[in-house]
Design a binder for these strands. Structure first.
Length: 700
DNA sequence: TGGCTACAA
């Protein structure tokens, strides 16, 4: 289990200051603070980290593994790779610097290339999905953690690299967590085989580093001071029952008291909540007395069109206050300058996973201390700031220290397939930094077994030839399987399209205010065979007009996501051609396409009951058709679906009508007695059918 | 029979 991190008491909190641990950690480096930067090469020397450069180089030269703590603004991400290069450390191979996000990998590479005065793609390059800007000259390679993981499948020892820098390790994405284990194993095996040593540098912005250090053989921790400014933190005196109301009051309190140039950033949970509060704020702002200046309220969340997202960067007109209402996208992904006040509701929408039911639930919950500090830190990027926490100090003390790593709360089917593809057969004992729940691992193995991806003999698990092929797709195993069976049904082109459509955020644009219009436009694409076929119709129509943006607008189709679909599709198609040396298409025979979906999604099958309700065959839980489905008013006997969404009920989303015989064909053993008329199955084989908990039942 | 999705590849 993750250890409770040792966080600074709020009152003495100075972001970027590691002083409170000075006595404990002798490895600390104490740079002098620099001033605001002016030219480019001088800029590097003015970064806080520069003062520690020579010490860092000495340390990094001798250490096999190091943990580096540095707040935002310390310059660690751009400078460490250059220091390594300048000192000739790891020149025998490349230096990989991983990032959880694409934009970060790309922009960091750009900045470092500029600092080196070298064209991007030469000495400094980057690799992210769909884009590889590197050359044989590339020594410093910025990449997404997912890309390095994918490379590891072909090269588990990561022999091209002399140094791997895992940045933003505190975010604990699934990919980073798997990489921890992969680089640690590669490091050990390379040393055993007397190969070029692999140096591992873990970089994190938070103080909960003991876990990192312990995991990497008690490696030393180096501290760097950042260039954050002091932040005053305020708590409410009483617990707030309504955080939205509390946010509203706080916004206008600040608005009445603070100079209008001081912008406010409010952290909330989701789109609907944000839009509602935005409306309320605008209404109230209209009716304020003259003494109060005007206010511009800007919502910010991921599904917002890019043009509207950019609004947060535009300065408000003089004398007007900018109030940004944001999801946690502003916590990490988008950095907004000029924020003087942060209001933290203390809530976040996060995914939870129940391995028994396979249910992923998106629920509003309290943030962790680490998240609360991350949010507060957004107020002190250029100058000192304030953070108003809409909860009491006692409530803060009771928050969990760090956010539960994603790997402990998600479906692990893809992870396990990837581990197996890396040649790790003892997946159940893989050296995770934070072990995922054993039920999640078992569930994942069971799913892979059902899909025909693995052979299990006693405790030894190995990939089948099909499983090996599945691992070559950057997809969830069930979708890889769907593609891989498609040649048997001569419909690879169609299946590729459908899987690509499912790989991106929805291409359907549904502005609530124009609901009737949307419905009328969408009618012409609707298929009685289900949502997948409806999506296929939309894609075909989109291609017919050569991806016209105008057509997208008229038909309420998100053209950005549609463009992404095209990219994903091309990538999947390339992989397909490599695996199969050819493609086939049935053009009109959509039944075959549905057969493929049955082969990939059969674990997500549901059966119509005599009373008109549906039951999921895998878990026997009652499920319903989501109102957004084209099959909402239909009553097909059997369907497969993409996912279950747990809101007021358990809703199946994205449905496809199937024949029960197809399900039998897809997994004869599994379905032998699962289909209608086997009520006793439940009691006979409890180990295959985990009991439905009362929690699930009451929620459905 | 009736709901609405944080982030990432």
């Amino acid at each position: 289990m993750p250890q409770e991190p040792d966080f600074p008491p709020a009152k003495r909190f100075r972001p970027g200051s590691p002083f409170f641990r000075l006595s404990k950690k002798p490895g600390m480096l104490l740079p002098r603070k620099g001033n605001a930067a002016v030219p480019t090469d001088v800029q590097r020397r003015r970064l806080p980290i520069y003062q520690a450069r020579s010490q860092l180089i000495v340390q990094l030269r001798q250490l096999h593994s190091a943990v580096l703590i540095g707040e935002t603004g310390s310059g660690k991400t751009t400078q460490i790779p250059q220091y390594l290069y300048e000192a000739g450390i790891g020149r025998q191979g490349m230096v990989a610097i991983t990032q959880p996000r694409r934009v970060a990998a790309i922009s960091l590479a750009g900045r470092v290339a500029e600092e080196r005065n070298s064209p991007l793609g030469k000495l400094v390059g980057y690799t992210v999905r769909f884009e590889d800007v590197t050359s044989p000259d590339t020594k410093l390679k910025f990449m997404t953690d997912g890309m390095l993981l994918r490379e590891a499948i072909g090269d588990p020892l990561l022999l091209r690299y002399a140094v791997v820098v895992l940045d933003e390790a505190h975010e604990r994405t699934v990919h980073t967590d798997v990489l921890f284990g992969v680089v640690k194993a590669a490091q050990r095996r390379r040393s055993e085989q007397n190969r070029l040593p692999l140096k591992v540098i873990v970089m994190s912005a938070t103080m909960d580093v003991d876990l990192f250090s312990q995991y990497f053989n008690k490696s030393p921790v180096l501290y760097l001071e950042g260039r954050q400014h002091p932040i005053q933190v305020f708590y409410t005196k009483q617990p707030q029952s309504d955080y939205l109301q509390a946010a509203l009051v706080s916004i206008f309190q600040i608005h009445q008291e603070a100079p209008p140039s001081h912008d406010i950033l409010v952290f909330m949970t989701g789109q609907e909540e944000i839009e509602a509060l935005a409306r309320t704020c605008r209404d109230i702002a209209k009716h304020l007395p003259e003494t109060c200046g005007p206010m511009t309220v800007i919502p910010l969340y991921a599904s917002l069109p890019p043009v509207q997202q950019l609004r947060v960067f535009q300065p408000a007109p003089k004398g007007c206050r900018k109030v940004i209402l944001s999801t946690n996208i502003a916590e990490t992904s988008i950095t907004i300058s000029g924020i003087k006040f942060v209001i933290d509701t203390g809530m976040v929408k996060a995914k939870r996973y129940n391995p028994d039911s396979g249910l992923e639930v998106l629920a509003v919950q309290r943030v962790s201390k680490a998240q609360a500090w991350q949010r507060a830190g957004r107020a002190g990027r250029e100058d000192s700031g304030s953070c108003y926490r809409l909860y009491t100090e006692e409530e803060f003390d009771n928050l969990t220290g760090m956010t539960v790593p994603e790997i402990q709360r998600c479906n692990l089917t893809s992870v396990v397939l990837q581990l197996l593809a890396l040649g790790i057969s003892d997946v159940l004992n893989f050296d995770f930094m934070s072990k995922p729940p054993p039920e999640s691992m078992r569930m994942a193995l069971e799913q892979l077994d059902l899909l025909g991806a693995v052979d299990r003999k006693d405790d030894q698990v190995s990939l089948t030839p099909l499983g090996k092929k599945m691992a070559s797709f950057p997809l969830e195993p069930r979708f890889a399987k769907t593609i891989l069976v498609s040649p048997d049904f001569s419909c690879t082109e169609e299946v590729l399209t459908i899987v690509s459509l499912l790989s991106v955020d929805t291409v359907l644009y549904n502005p609530p205010a124009r609901r009737e219009e949307v419905l009328a436009m969408r009618k012409k694409f609707m298929s009685s065979e289900g949502d997948h076929m409806t999506l296929l119709n939309i894609y075909r129509a989109f291609k017919k007009v050569s991806g016209s943006k105008e057509w997208c607008r008229e038909n309420f189709v998100n053209s950005r996501n549609m463009g992404l679909v095209t990219e994903v599709r091309a990538q999947l198609r390339d992989i397909c051609i490599k695996v199969y040396h050819g493609l086939e298409s049935s053009l009109a025979d959509l039944a075959n396409v549905r057969r493929c979906l049955a082969h990939g999604l059969f674990v997500n099958a549901a059966e119509l009951q005599p009373d008109g309700s549906y039951v999921a065959l895998h878990t026997h839980q009652p499920v319903s058709i989501h109102p957004s489905s084209v099959l909402f008013q239909a009553k097909p006997a059997y369907v497969v679906f993409n996912e279950l969404l747990h809101t007021s009920r358990c809703y199946m989303r994205d449905l496809c009508l199937v024949d029960p015989e197809w399900l039998q064909d897809a997994a004869p053993e599994y379905f032998r007695r699962k289909l209608r008329g086997d009520a006793l199955q439940w009691e006979k084989m409890p180990q295959m059918l985990p009991p439905v908990t009362s929690e699930i039942l009451s929620g459905c």
